[in-house]
């Protein structure tokens, strides 16, 4: 397991080609590392630092500054629910409470089956389609709990099938 793996070589080279400095590729490379490890692990930090000619402390500070890099392992589906003012005016707080209750988790927690990590986030620029969330960086909009329950159970069934 490593981002030095051949399968990433082309993508990493394409990122370095975009910028006059290696350091500028730190953010795109952190995304690739997160894809490989599932989170920004110590190995991920080390590998990105080597590739970008940076100190690992500097890379860690970048990973910590931005919310889309996860500094701890998380579920297969990372559900980031917007509860900011415009979404809250359209029921996002109640939606988020119900979602947490259904998955039996606290804010930032992962469901017992290890599939879903949920947290609330700040405005995602989809205020006219609230309640909404991003699932592994893809937007899901105009949600209600019926849609969410169907989604969750579908993913649970998929995971179960995969196990068998």
């Amino acid at each position: 397991m490593s981002i030095h793996d051949k399968k990433y070589a082309e993508r990493i080279a394409a990122q370095f080609a975009k910028y006059p400095t290696k350091r500028s590729a730190v953010m795109p490379l952190l995304y690739i590392a997160q894809e490989e490890y599932g989170w920004i692990s110590p190995e991920a930090i080390q590998e990105v630092a080597e590739l970008c000619n940076m100190d690992s402390t500097q890379v860690k500070s970048i990973a910590g500054f931005y919310t889309m890099y996860s500094e701890k392992p998380k579920g297969k589906y990372w559900l980031q629910v917007c509860t900011d003012l415009p979404c809250a005016l359209r029921g996002a707080d109640e939606f988020y409470e119900e979602l947490k209750a259904y998955l039996e988790v606290e804010d930032g927690g992962t469901s017992r089956d290890g599939l879903f990590t949920v947290e609330h986030v700040m405005c995602l620029a989809a205020c006219d389609k609230a309640p909404m969330l991003q699932c592994n960086f893809h937007f899901m909009e105009n949600l209600d709990m019926d849609k969410m329950k169907a989604f969750i159970e579908e993913k649970r069934a998929e995971a179960k099938k995969h196990e068998e």
């Binding site: 900011d84 003012l85 415009p86 700040m122 405005c123 620029a125 989809a126 205020c127 006219d128």
Partner: peptide, 11 residues
């Protein structure tokens, strides 16, 4: 970067 609360035009 469009991150102002309530903004979704650039998208």
């Amino acid at each position: 970067d469009e991150s102002e609360t309530g903004t979704f035009k650039d998208r």
